[in-house]
């Protein structure tokens, strides 16, 4: 039996994909910005269940101009890693606006609570491995890469 990925079935959302040492995160959305938002949720899900993170605080995240959409996506995930690490926060909702390879985003979340969130790992960084941002034949955008944990 062939297992179809969510990207192939044409459903917006997020999923993880295989990497033996780490884990791949993939966002699927109707727009590139939606795909970026969903991939950020996929990254949160590497750490904990996004459903257990309350949206108590908002953090603005900006990424200056990148050489292309793929580097911009990599910058976006790494900016979230930075905010999680320096603020000791987890995020469960994201909003992205993209214009000319620059990004303005928001992330909603709360302080890490070891008891409540029991984070499995910390994400060290988003890598350039399996990095892809593209619109598929079904019209949906995907944004993906492997994150180092």
């Amino acid at each position: 039996m062939t297992v179809q990925t969510q990207a192939e079935t044409g459903q917006p959302g997020w999923e993880h994909f295989h990497h033996v040492a780490d884990i791949g995160v993939r966002g699927i959305g109707k727009t590139m910005a939606n795909a970026f938002e969903q991939a950020a949720l996929a990254m949160t899900a590497v750490i904990t269940d996004p459903a257990c993170i309350k949206q108590k605080q908002t953090v603005n995240i900006a990424c200056p101009e990148a050489p292309d959409d793929e580097y911009l996506f990599n910058d976006w995930l790494n900016a979230i890693v930075y905010e999680m690490d320096t603020r000791k926060m987890l995020f469960s909702r994201f909003q992205v606006t993209i214009m000319d390879h620059t990004l303005a985003g928001k992330a909603w979340g709360e302080q890490v609570d070891m008891q409540k969130h029991t984070p499995a790992v910390e994400v060290k960084g988003a890598t350039l491995t399996a990095l892809k941002v593209e619109q598929q034949g079904n019209g949906l955008w995907i944004a993906q890469c492997v994150v180092d944990v």
Partner: peptide, 17 residues
């Protein structure tokens, strides 16, 4: 820790470009 991860992240990108 975070310092090494950030240096890796920044130089990975800048060296690739």
């Amino acid at each position: 820790r975070g310092l090494g991860h950030q240096i890796g992240t920044e130089f990975l990108k800048s060296m690739a470009i």
